[in-house]
Design a protein around this nucleic acid. Structure first.
Lengths: 331, 331
DNA sequence: TTGAAAGCGCTAACAT
DNA sequence: ATGTTAGCGCTTTCAA
């Protein structure tokens, strides 16, 4: 672990010159060679920690996501990475596990590590961002919004919920349930609000509040909720799930019960990951996960570059709705 | 962005005392209160960069994985995280994208950022680890081995390939192909070697070198390879894929061709992620992804704690083979 | 163009 | 128990 001093000594120049060489400042080509050779011999790599302490910033951006095992977030991460690398920034990923404490911990780290910026997919609405914001670190929220006045990029969740639900009614289903995520999570609330809006207008039978199920955001949550729905006195004949993983869970339960769409209607907000056998009756409302990432990264890059315009929110449409949803046959 | 000096001034103590308070060293409760209050007022958080420059180390460990979109690696990451958090370490994830250059870049970062340790799922066999190793940073390899004398934790890939192939023959298939990953990647080589070993013994028809297909490690690779296999003059009646994602691709192509296992035998080394409709005829050789992660993290923690025993390699068995593979019916 | 020197914020001797 | 101070490795004025 050699330092610029050792390189300087070996090259017969001053530490400042070594620093200049490594930062591309003007140095006589004579000494450049000397320094490079010496650095080569000593296997010198500049110590980023020291550089950072000096510069108060690094070429690292932190990306905090709530669930690293959810393909939606990994796709988003890829987007962030692609964009960041273009600008010479490296991305470190932190998994907050939907836990506000872990989130706060990683935010602290990102700030006190002097990272160049932060992209945050917030675990909860009430994370402690004041801290970060007050320090003036560039930050952009993605997927879910925060109570703070910062840049954000999101999808039109309401519209996504509406599209999913409409697709089901259009296909001829009449008792459309909804498997939503945990209460209080914005994305889920909005999507299920979309569902409710359509259902109110197009008419589920009255008195079926139990058609709205809350579950955890993962596969097992979807499974539990779907089981509950099937056990209802008057089960629904179709379901909207407000994210991809719960969609997987719901489909698993249906499959285990010997029910295959379009016998039962299924629409999922999000993309079903790694599908092998997929009834083409399933509706998917594709979310632009990767695009969310690139957009957020672009915004962050602008801020890092010094852009000081007021905070913006960009809303991406969950535009692409796919899924040949034929009129149910076997009912 | 306040410093210990400001806190010290406000609290009427010395910077050293502030430092001591924040590091839990003995300080009179009187001054502890003073310092805490001052820190509160100033919203002081210790600057990790400075601390690190001073300590030459941090409580951060870097995990480098080749494909963040592959559930195998995200499961592994979860394992690492769980174990690391237990010891008070935070994990930052870096996606090398199977690109040696990116890998080297992130390794450089990890080292020059003075991270406490590194867990590396190597992109290629010939990454430039000399650098890291020579600096004496604790490092453990996971999933694939390196040419270097460092700790490693892996699965018994040969055995996994053998188990998958045997399962297919046992079920009554007789022309068993193999979709392997890129040439030169250890895990894939080993697994396909396992396949070859069984096939040689239990007897594919002679002259079918084309039953071994190399593909990229992802879904589209599996798709392409499966298509090629089906187009062969004498197509196989079963296939082993050497990872999870290629398995997904193969199943997609079969499904699109209207072929459903067990009409055609499929065994995948790895776990099919997020399956919705899964013919129970499929054999899966489950890889202990998460366990790989926890084990690697444990080893790393030991090294960080100062353990200096010679490098160890731990081999985990891909023990659990699942999959009721009935004798094919419709042939 | 080059060097000397200060200082980024913190911790750990050392001294009191 | 507490304060003083040197220094981690780097960059960047300021002079020369």
């Amino acid at each position: 672990m050699s330092t610029i001093y050792e390189v300087a000594a070996l090259a017969g120049v001053s530490p400042a010159t070594v620093s200049r060489v490594f930062n591309g400042l003007s140095v006589s080509s004579e000494k450049i060679r000397l320094v490079r050779d010496a650095a080569e011999v000593l296997k010198f790599t500049p110590n980023r920690t020291a550089r950072r302490l000096r510069n108060q910033s690094s070429e690292l951006i932190a990306l905090l996501i709530p669930d690293i095992e959810n393909p939606f977030f990994t796709a988003l991460a890829r987007g962030v990475e692609d964009r960041a690398q273009q600008s010479g920034y490296s991305v470190v990923l932190c998994n907050t596990d939907d836990d506000p404490d872990k989130e706060t911990n990683y935010l602290d780290i990102a700030v006190s590590e002097n990272m160049a910026g932060i992209i945050l997919a917030p675990a909860s609405a009430d994370g402690d961002l004041a801290h970060v914001v007050s320090r003036g670190r560039p930050m952009v929220a993605v997927d879910r919004s925060t109570g703070f006045d910062i840049d954000a990029v999101m999808v039109d969740n309401r519209a996504a919920g509406i599209a999913a639900t409409n697709a089901l009614f259009d296909a001829g289903y009449s008792r459309v349930a909804c498997i939503a995520g945990p209460v209080g999570i914005e994305t889920t609330e909005e999507r299920s609000l979309g569902w409710r809006q359509v259902v109110t207008r197009r008419g589920n039978p009255a008195g079926h509040d139990d058609y709205l199920q809350h579950a955890n955001y993962r596969v097992d949550g979807g499974r539990a909720a779907m089981r509950t729905l099937l056990d209802l006195p008057t089960p629904p004949d179709a379901v909207v799930t407000t994210n991809n993983l719960m969609g997987v869970g719901a489909l698993q339960i249906l499959s285990e019960a010997g029910i295959t769409p379009p016998e039962f209607g299924v629409a999922v907000v999000g993309d079903l990951p790694f599908t092998t056998l997929l009834p083409d009756a399933i509706t998917q409302v594709h979310l632009p996960a990767r695009h969310l990432g690139t957009t957020a990264a672009s915004m962050l890059m602008e801020r890092i570059a010094g852009d000081t315009q007021p905070a913006r929110t960009i809303v991406l449409r969950a535009s692409v709705t796919q899924g040949a949803t034929p009129v149910p046959t076997a009912r």
